[in-house]
Write a protein that binds this DNA or RNA. Structure first.
Ligand SMILES: [Mn+2]
Ligand SMILES: [Mn+2]
Ligand SMILES: [Mn+2]
Ligand SMILES: [Mn+2]
Lengths: 165, 165
DNA sequence: ACTATGGTGTAGCAATGGCTACATTGTGCA
DNA sequence: TGCACAATGTAGCCATTGCTACACCATAGT
């Protein structure tokens, strides 16, 4: 197919590859696809990140992390948490034996620590640029998973430069 | 079950509800669950937001938005785009007839416009706080979907106060 | 020591979002 | 005027992340 626009029969434009300025168009595509691809990867990791952070918090607060507590904190049904914990185990981030609590491996703990630090940094930055505290806390829960190291370093420098942190 | 920690048989702690300070613990849970819940909603909407924005961009640039172009820009296989476009139609955001291009409904166009504006605002803010341009562009593709209106207004005010925008 | 109760596990369903493989369609160009 | 071939559609696979329903287990308290 060689392409013809048709909408309501108005436009009539041919194009061998793409109709827009052949200069920018060809450069834009792969770059944009890369950005979307990165976002998809981050989305896929976000669940693991939240779980490890939460498990570490529960162990710190309660001495243990139980499936039901994890589920309640996340606001999901317990089989949902159970299934994701299975994924954590599969990916070497956690261990668990039936009817005992959930434990983090070294890799899981490392993830938890870096994720917690990043979470706090994002909240602090949002507040520093004027976001209401609760909005900052809520938004950070999603935003955190998409902040690159380069951006994170910029956040740190920004906060330093303001005396905060 | 009344709960007993056990890990390696070390800890031995009972708890009727939760072991942590009964004052904060009970207040923390629902608040945190709410934040996670909001993040899940945003995650669910993110795909629709990216598609409407992209379709509007393609129509502006090419006069039409074809399934293959959408897929290539997103970096996914065309049946993946095709399936998501079906969801857009189902949710009243787009229309399409076989072998013609994709069109946005009024609702879809409204979403595209607000999403594009939010996207730009997020990129501008990230750059304003010092993120490298390409990191800002890449991170914004994920971050944008999790920024609340309250935080967005704060971003606007922050940029205004700096003469940017 | 028993048992009621609540934590835990498991089965099975649905929606979403990836993919590959293959069928169908439209049209630019020979 | 046809037809080759790219674009589009469709079928069917898998993984993830939700859910409800139900079975099983551990123990706190009697
Ligand atoms: Mn999070
Ligand atoms: Mn977090
Ligand atoms: Mn996006
Ligand atoms: Mn965007």
């Amino acid at each position: 197919m060689r392409r013809v626009a048709s909408g309501g029969g108005l436009v009539t434009k041919k194009r061998s590859k793409s109709s827009a300025s052949a200069s920018t168009e060809l450069a834009t595509e792969p770059v944009q696809a890369d950005r979307f691809s990165k976002a998809r990867s981050a989305r896929s990791a976000s669940m693991l990140e939240d779980y490890t952070e939460l498990i570490a918090d529960l162990i710190a607060a309660n001495g243990e992390a139980r499936t039901t507590d994890i589920a309640r904190r996340l606001g999901v049904a317990h089989p949902t948490a159970s299934k994701t914990i299975a994924r954590l185990k599969r990916e070497g981030l956690a261990t668990a034996r039936p009817y005992r609590g959930i434990f983090l491996t070294e890799a899981g703990l490392a993830m938890a620590n870096s994720v917690r630090q990043r979470h706090r940094l994002v909240v602090d930055l949002l507040i520093a640029v004027g976001a209401p505290r609760e909005a900052a806390e809520a938004d950070a829960e999603g935003i955190e998973h998409y902040v690159s190291d380069a951006t994170l370093r910029a956040f740190e420098a920004f906060l330093h430069g303001r005396g905060q942190r």
